[in-house]
Design a protein around this nucleic acid. Sequence first.
DNA 1: CAGTTTGGTGTAATCCATTGCAAAACACTC
DNA 2: GAGTGTTTTGCAATGGATTACACCAAACTG
Lengths: 336, 336
Amino acid sequence: MEKQTVTIYDVAREAAVSMATVSRVVNGNPNVKPATRKKVLAVIERLDYRPNAVARGLASKRSTTVGVIIPDVTNIYFASLARGIDDIAMMYKYNIILTNSDDAGEQEVNVLNTLMAKQVDGIIFMGNHIDDKLRAEFKRAKAPVVLAGTVDPQGDTPSVNIDYAAAVEEAVTALIKRGHEKIAIALGPLSQSINAEYRLAGYKRALNKAKLPYDDSLVYEAGYSYDAGTKLQPVIADSGATAVFVGDDEMAAGIINASVESGISIPDDLEVITSNDTIVTQITRPAITSITQPLYDIGAVAMRMLTKLMNDKELDEKTVTLPYGIVRRASTKSAE
Amino acid sequence: MEKQTVTIYDVAREAAVSMATVSRVVNGNPNVKPATRKKVLAVIERLDYRPNAVARGLASKRSTTVGVIIPDVTNIYFASLARGIDDIAMMYKYNIILTNSDDAGEQEVNVLNTLMAKQVDGIIFMGNHIDDKLRAEFKRAKAPVVLAGTVDPQGDTPSVNIDYAAAVEEAVTALIKRGHEKIAIALGPLSQSINAEYRLAGYKRALNKAKLPYDDSLVYEAGYSYDAGTKLQPVIADSGATAVFVGDDEMAAGIINASVESGISIPDDLEVITSNDTIVTQITRPAITSITQPLYDIGAVAMRMLTKLMNDKELDEKTVTLPYGIVRRASTKSAE
DNA sequence: CAGTTTGGTGTAATCCATTGCAAAACACTC
DNA sequence: GAGTGTTTTGCAATGGATTACACCAAACTG
């Protein structure tokens, strides 16, 4: 017993009007006589008619669907952006096709092509690195692309971010002011521009302004995970650094716990500042001082921009920079 | 300068064959002479033709898209399931339309209807409670539905879970064996069957078997969040309970931190066991003993079941129960 | 009151593929 | 070379909407 589908044609017949009129009623086109509208709506109600979005998409060339590429949904940072994206998308009646890319270039390109095949009206891309191949794909795409929480040093693609370099600079400068001279920095892969070209640059700038020497051996590269942090901690301890800036909250949590366990007092022996202000920063003991970012808003603003682009409107600014802050918790000493 | 689209018709013309043949080549239909196939593939390559998935969906009545309803992507528990779902979906060439429901019945129904309008081939539903309204919608849907990490006490809908009641019973029994007589239980809303009909039932069973009295006032209802945990902690402390089972990891983290801060020693004064073994359980100090669940697999198995249903195959079992475990960490004393 | 707008509705083309059926092409057999 | 059986291929219907265009009727204009 196949579940049969009610089509616009059925409605037209029952209501004794043409398909065009039914379509107008469904789409809220004002050029329909109120009496006709009422009659059609009654039939729609009676037959429980629901427009087929696929057919609609084919005819109108708009799928009211946007593609979202995310490195990993289980990463709280990106998941928070995704939440902002979805909420705004829903507000504008768009749906989200969400796909994990694992930050892998090849996979990103693949996914992008699948999304284009599905005729998404736009794409929001999240990732840690944009390379030429990706840029080329973005150009090739018929749909607009917006980057969320993702930097493209070349700035071709519209994007929403905070000023990572300035945030790191401010955080590190605060450490310097408290007298630290050996400040380590633990980041994700330096092959990713967010780390190499923004965070590290901010760190260098802070050192520079304070006329402190930049020392390669205080720069650490690790994975974005708790375990990576615990493994990295002894190395940092050996370096003699008295403070560390960390590029990922889970990594920072790993460093904190491993430090405490090996008898290092935080913040007395080592001050720690991290980057994303996720819930993790409140759970550790001591809790972690962090750069704060409007995560939800980064996603939300990116989606708002995308809706504009999808409707062929101009963007006020192509590269949006939202404000960041720094929230002090117990992993750093109070400023004097 | 409109970006023009290459259609199957263009390919057919250029290759001097019919659309049907092109379609066969694209879909890997074996009834094509190798020479023809090669010729068509060459043209496809040259024109950079990519099939329009929407048109394909309309003609074939399959969208190769599945809907996924999730309470909140930023919840690590559900996000982990989603990751399993997406990986398997991708393996079977399906895409995921992901939508947040906030666990709100009305929103869930809405979203379900939108997904059906988009002609998804199947739906994976995650949530904390299934009511009659939802069950009715599931029946009405033309596409199969599978529940992931979500119980339906009536068991109409295929689902993948662990045996929550047994897990809680085992955890609480272990506490009882260590001599606890006043064991509190902190859960999410009791209006949700996972809490009222499974976790609480397991708790009662454990007490029952040990002939301990069941005391209403040791049952706490709170939100699934860190803050809810910190707020709940003083109440638990006042109850005189010497151990507590918690239904959510973030809530447990809140209870732990608030306890430690108010001078309560964990596990000496209060033992804590939680439910989901997310990364949070490793980050707190003490780390939290937890029921372990194969989160990724719950999602993955659910998606596998859905692919079977979408291809009209029979399910071996409709209600799949995956194994759980209990991992001891520092928030409980070692068993003697 | 003829002439022009405007409003409401229908006709039919279009969107881009899939697919059942029929025909053509080819290979064999006797 | 006719007859039979397979492969290949094409024709054309189909899926369920949107939308340009045409048309008629009602309302307005001077």
